[in-house]
Amino acid sequence: MNFEQYQNYLIDTASSLLSIDSASGFTTNVTDYLLKTVEELGYPAYRNNIGNVIVTVEGEDDTEPVALSAHVDTLGLMVRSITSDGMLMITSVGSPLLPSLDGEYCNIHTRDGKVYTGTILSLSPAIHVFPDASTRDRDEQNMAVRIDEIVHSKEDVEALGIHAGDFVCYDSKTTFTKSGFLKSRFIDDKACSALELTLLKIMKDNVIKPKHKTYICFSTHEEIGYGGATLPKDIKELLVIDMGCVGLDLTCTEEQVSICAKDSSGPFDYEITTRLVNLAKKYNLDAVTDIYPRYTSDALALWRAGYDTRAALIGPGVQASHGMERTHIKGLMNTLELCAAYLELI
């Protein structure tokens, strides 16, 4: 199968997903996009009560269902309070690398559907004014959002309809370079969600089925710990498609697919992980096996919810995770092919 012909679809789909604000707890717009896209591809899908999108693909054998899961929720912020001079104090959604947000543009989404733009700044933002401009901590107590509206007081801000609990979604800054790099926030995990949509298109275009009945899942609360807790109950195996870690003593690069043998919750299923290692060798994929000591995924949420499901995890190598992330088209394509091999599409 010629996977390279799907690179442009993958890139376009990733760009579309990355353009949609979807911090955990604020994912309706991105799941609307998923349902529309999947419907156009001709697959049955539904959004469950908590917001996950589940696509059902009939297999050659429907007795042992498997699932792939990536997440479309992202890191983000919420308005914690409004200062007397009209700045928005923030609280984190998930675990964004806050120092990397100093100076980033953002959208403020109100409960009545209005969207305002702003900038996330240190509370000592000017070198000509504040003696601690370069040294002040960049954290929730020392950063705020400056709204692009004429406001001088808390009352001015509230008159716009902005209140505590409104979501603040910052710019993804998505760029594909001529050298093949995807630079963007939220590659974790919208790039892998784009891979799942690409797999669906490959199966449609080539009129092929996976060996087993397969659920293609898009979870919406992974960044806050429970995205995998409400996946279909009959899953026998779960392959989580999430970012691969790059750095320290890890082997993976951005051009590779990483097979995670163990994360902070413990080892993944030995048999599935070994199968993935052997599939990568069989199809000459650029793959490595690594350990992620500061990492959890939808698999942990699934196990904590009481599922009797074996699980493994793979993903493209992503540098600078939860900050200004980067991966490469080679890493994405290696991951795509390993997913296809796992489903026995090749």
Rank of each mutant, 00 (worst) to 15 (best):
Y105K: 15
V30W: 05
T117C: 14
A341L: 06
V145L: 07
N8I: 13
L199D: 06
L68M: 09
L300T: 13
G315K: 07
Y342F: 15
E140P: 11
T327R: 06
P131A: 04
A23V: 12
Y170F: 14
S134D: 14
I162C: 05
G42V: 06
M143R: 10
L343H: 08
V57A: 11
Y170N: 05
N48A: 02
S92M: 12
F176R: 05
I314R: 05
L75M: 02
T214W: 01
K281F: 01
L279E: 03
A299Q: 06
G25W: 00
L197E: 08
N2Q: 09
I147Y: 00
C192A: 13
K36D: 10
G51E: 03
G247T: 11
E255L: 09
D188V: 09
N142P: 00
I224C: 06
K213F: 04
K173D: 13
F130L: 06
D308C: 11
L199I: 10
L336K: 02
P232T: 01
G266R: 08
T31L: 08
S84A: 08
P44S: 00
S81E: 06
Y342C: 03
G165P: 00
S134M: 09
L239R: 02
S321W: 08
R146S: 15
L121A: 14
D12I: 11
A341N: 00
T335I: 07
A45H: 06
I147D: 01
V55W: 00
P293K: 02
V115W: 03
A191W: 04
D166V: 01
A320P: 12
M78C: 08
Q7C: 14
G113N: 05
D62C: 13
I235W: 00
L121R: 12
W303E: 04
V277L: 07
E325P: 15
A311I: 02
K178G: 15
T177W: 09
G227K: 13
A299P: 00
Y170L: 00
F181M: 08
R80T: 04
A126R: 12
E149S: 12
F186S: 05
P210D: 01
L238P: 02
F268R: 03
L313D: 04
H128P: 06
S172Q: 08
I108N: 02
D139F: 09
I202P: 02
L332E: 05
E254V: 13
L10V: 03
V168I: 10
A229C: 04
A305N: 14
V66M: 03
H328T: 10
V240L: 01
V72H: 07
G94I: 02
I54R: 06
D263W: 05
V145F: 08
A340C: 14
E60L: 14
R146M: 15
G103L: 02
S193A: 14
R111K: 15
T31D: 04
P267I: 12
N49Q: 15
T13H: 08
D132C: 03
Q5W: 11
E155V: 10
Y270Q: 11
D263I: 03
K262F: 03
K213S: 06
G306L: 04
L276K: 09
I259K: 03
I329C: 06
T289E: 11
R294I: 13
E60D: 11
G76E: 07
Q7T: 11
V246W: 00
L285M: 08
T214L: 02
R138A: 04
Y270F: 15
Y307G: 07
V129W: 09
A164F: 15
R275I: 06
